[in-house]
């Protein structure tokens, strides 16, 4: 009986998480993905496997040596400088955003409660896609 309740809770938790993700991702699409001070939000994807989470982050044009992956509270924080400063106007070939210069990537990703951050590892692939693996706690 106890197990059933736990299972029910787990199912509910997942449903709520999914719903929250959906709403957040809708917000995400509306939000600007850069700030006037030069911060860029990278594209990322979170995959869930039975035993781990795998997060892929696209850090195109980043300085690979500056990539930092850390955990703050219940969030994963990814940061990296760009190889060189890029003017938003140049990037899109428009005069409108000439004043904005992109300098670094920063992204915070909320971690699920069963993420075992002690066991976290990451590697930066040659194409500058960062793969972060976080084991899941059992039970």
């Amino acid at each position: 009986m106890v197990e059933d309740v736990e299972e029910l809770f787990e199912r509910l938790r997942r449903r709520v998480m999914r719903e929250v993700d959906r709403v957040l991702s809708e917000f995400e699409a509306l939000r600007l993905d850069w700030t006037p001070d030069g911060r860029l939000s990278p594209l990322y994807t979170v995959y869930e496997f039975p035993d781990k989470y795998v997060v892929l982050v696209d850090l195109a044009a980043a300085d690979v040596d500056s990539v930092e992956v850390k955990v703050a509270d219940d969030r994963l924080v990814i940061e990296a400088r760009l190889e060189r400063e890029i003017s938003l106007g140049d990037l899109y070939g428009t005069t409108a955003m000439r004043g904005v210069t992109l300098r670094y990537y920063r992204q915070e990703i909320p971690l699920p409660p069963d993420a075992d951050v002690e066991g976290m590892s990451y590697r930066v692939r040659p194409d500058k896609i960062v793969e972060i693996v976080i084991p899941r706690r059992r039970g």
């Binding site: 860029l40 696209d58 195109a60 044009a61 890029i86 500058k128």
Partner: peptide
Amino acid sequence: EMIRLRLRGLMK
């Protein structure tokens, strides 16, 4: 890499 950077918005 610049193409990836430029196409982030369209990808989203």
